[in-house]
Write a protein that binds this DNA or RNA. Structure first.
Lengths: 109, 109
DNA sequence: CTAACCTACAACCAAATGGTTGGATATGAA
DNA sequence: TTCATATCCAACCATTTGGTTGTAGGTTAG
């Protein structure tokens, strides 16, 4: 999970994910889109691949890079859990305000 | 956006977000939960605050830390866009394959 | 075959990150 | 007031990160 979020914490890498979700692209095509060296873009792709956000598929001398929606869903699931925690808390607060039964004991972690 | 994802790219910080979504906690309470110095936890909280993932509210000599679901939703929105891009692409592929089938009623909705 | 092209990888560098310790400041308790 | 507590901040250190250049290997074009 660390690697997924840290891979997404870079504008260039997020754009690579977006582009490769729209459609496959070679490393060269990606490199041409950003104002940095080929090797720099290649390293970004490697980071994304390490996080499972893209996959590379050899095609002759090229490598086709594809965005991987599966891994994006893994990040979404975590954020969804966070939001659910908040929603649950709001529900409990609502319940508390709606009736005056004592709250359940609060065990420390 | 960089700061949001990079703040979430750390297990300790994700746990702080989770805990402060469940309920407010002081910096000291948080610090007691992790195997690192008070200052280290404090820096994590500062990073989360800089990303807008938590807010701090002075309460006497303590600072109550609250998770901020608003910012979590911002990250969700970006991931949702990514997934939508993928879904759109799949739809286009479906349309292409269904090209000359007689009555093509919309699959969903 | 030769040349051009696409990719991979290593070495290097500056800046950011995640941790530490120690000290300063502010508030609460005795 | 005095003491303990809660927080903040600065300096320092090791590691990681994001970029560079250069080199080397595999693949396609001529």
């Amino acid at each position: 999970m660390d690697r997924i979020f840290s891979a997404l914490a870079d504008r260039t890498r997020r754009d690579i994910v977006r582009r490769t979700l729209v459609g496959e692209a070679t490393v060269s095509q990606l490199a041409g889109s950003y104002d940095m060296s080929f090797a720099a873009v290649q390293k970004h792709v490697a980071v994304l691949e390490g996080a499972g956000l893209v996959t590379k598929h050899p095609h002759g001398r090229e490598r086709l890079v594809r965005g991987n929606p599966e891994t994006i869903r893994r990040a979404q699931t975590l954020l969804d859990r966070f939001e659910q925690i908040w929603a649950d808390r709001m529900d409990r607060l609502d319940a508390l305000l709606a009736d005056d039964t004592p709250p359940p004991p609060h065990p420390d972690e």
